Every structure is written in C-alpha cells, then in structure tokens.
Amino acid sequence: MSTEKRDHLYEYVLYFWRKKWLLIGIPVVVALLAFGLSQVTSKGYHGEATFSTGKITLASLADPELLQANYSKEFGNKLTVEPMEKSKVKFTVDAKDKATADSILNKASAKYIKALQDNYSFRKKLTEEGLAGNKKMLAKATKTYNEIQPKLLTDGPNMPPEQYALLAEAVTKTEKLISDKNSSIIGSTYDLEEFEKPDVMKKDVSKQSNHAKANTIIGFVFALFLTILGLMLAKYMRDAREGRRHD
C-alpha cells in the first residue's frame, strides 16, 4: 500500500515536472496582465486640504453640505467637502493629472481660507470694539457712582423723601450697570483669548495608489492555484480514460 502511494506521488511529481512551463508560464502571464491592468486603470491624483476653522458659527463656512453646494458651482464634482470633527473641514480633489488637482485644490483652498480669515477678523474686531465700549461705559459709570454714592450716605438723611428716593434709585441703577459691564468685559476678554485664527493644517496632492503590487501577487497566486487544479483534473481524466481502455 505504501509503495502504491509512493508510485502515485512520483507520477504526480513527474507529471508536474513535465508541465513546469505551464506551471510557471500561466501565473507569470496572469501576473503581468494584472500589473498592466492596474497601471492602465490608475485613477490619477488625489488631493486633500484640511482646515482649522476656529470657533466659527456661520453655516455657510462651517456646514459641509452648504460648502459642497457653494463650491460645486465653481469647481464641479471634482471637489468634495468632507465632514470632520468640530472646528475642522476637509476638501478632497480627484483628477486625472496632477496639474488639474493642484489647480482646483489651490484655488478652492485660497478662496475658503480667505473667507474664514475675513470672518475671523470681522468677529474679532466687533469683540474688541465691544470690549473698548464697555470699558468706557464702566469708567463713566464708576465715576458717576463714586460721586453719587457718598452723597447718598452723607446728604441723604437731610434730603426730601422724593429727592432721596431718586438718588437711591440712581445709585442702584449705577451699581447694576457697573456689574453688567464688568460681566461683559470678562466675557469679551475670555472670547478674545479663545479666538483661534483659521489656518490650513495640511494640503498635498499625491498619485492615487493603483495597488499594482498587491494585484500582481494575487494574480500570480490565484493563477498558480487554478493551473495546479486544472493540471490535476486533466491527469485524473487522462488516467480514468486509460483505465477504461485497459478494462
């Protein structure tokens, strides 16, 4: 029994050795075809630009769907706006050649970062102006308070009731105004400290991977498997026909 198994194994080894050119040739041809097809079907170039938008609330600059609609009018379907985590936006570009990908990505990026920085400058200027105005009003209110509050304490008891009531009301309103302006100043100061200037975090264009190496290896292995399977089937059928002739 053991001798019979060795004979069968020897037959298969000898058979595959005789068909070695098929075993080598077919997988190599398929691998070359897979490599060539990968090169031919290459998708071209892929560009990405990632932006830090800061704490922007304007929908036309922060909402990916609105950005896609607006920028598609100028750059078509080659440009895609992808949603990211808060305060970040990504532009992607797919084109057949590098020059086109570079051109679209650079123009779209320049337009978007300018819009972001213009909005940032506008919001910061408003906050700074509001802070300066509140500081002036605080100084004026503080001066008024320092004048009327001591007068209320010293002259109040000798004033007519109506005059005293008016002065007391003025002191109360001035105290509230001072408190409100202090709160506004603290809020504006915090806002200015938290302002983040928009910037381009990353921008590059690279050739899209055609997976030529992986496709070549897969093609070779798959073709080798099918070739071995086909040769084994062919030998089995040939042995079966010869067996019937002997019978």
Rank of each mutant, 00 (worst) to 15 (best):
M1A: 15
M1F: 12
T3I: 13
T3L: 12
D7E: 09
L9S: 14
Y12E: 07
L14G: 08
R18Y: 13
K20A: 06
W21G: 09
L23R: 00
L23I: 03
I24F: 10
G25Q: 02
I26Q: 03
I26A: 07
V30I: 14
L32G: 12
L33H: 03
L33K: 03
A34L: 10
L37F: 13
L37E: 10
S38W: 05
S38I: 07
V40F: 12
S42E: 12
S42F: 07
H46D: 06
G47W: 00
T50H: 08
K55D: 15
K55T: 12
S60W: 09
A62C: 05
P64M: 01
L66K: 07
Q68V: 02
A69F: 13
Y71H: 02
S72L: 05
F75I: 02
G76R: 02
K78E: 09
T80A: 14
E82W: 02
E82L: 14
M84L: 15
E85Q: 15
V89P: 00
F91D: 00
A95N: 00
D97G: 01
K98N: 08
A99H: 03
T100N: 03
T100D: 04
S103Y: 02
K107M: 07
K107H: 10
K107W: 05
S109I: 03
A110W: 04
I113Q: 00
I113L: 02
K114N: 04
A115Q: 04
Q117L: 06
Y120G: 03
F122S: 14
R123W: 06
L131I: 07
K136W: 08
K136R: 09
A139P: 02
K140I: 08
K140V: 10
A141P: 00
T142L: 04
T142I: 06
K143H: 10
Y145H: 09
N146A: 06
E147N: 11
Q149N: 15
P150W: 10
P150L: 11
L152N: 05
L152G: 08
L152A: 11
L153G: 07
T154E: 13
D155S: 13
N158E: 10
E162F: 11
L166R: 09
A168H: 09
V171T: 06
T172N: 09
T174L: 05
E175G: 09
I178K: 05
I185N: 09
T189G: 14
T189M: 07
K197I: 11
M201D: 12
K202E: 12
K202F: 12
K203P: 01
D204C: 03
S206G: 04
S206E: 11
K207V: 03
N210H: 05
K213Q: 11
N215E: 05
T216I: 03
G219R: 00
F220C: 01
A223S: 04
L224R: 01
T227M: 04
I228E: 00
L229G: 15
L229M: 14
L231H: 12
R238T: 13
D239P: 06
E242M: 13
E242N: 14
R244W: 13
H246T: 14
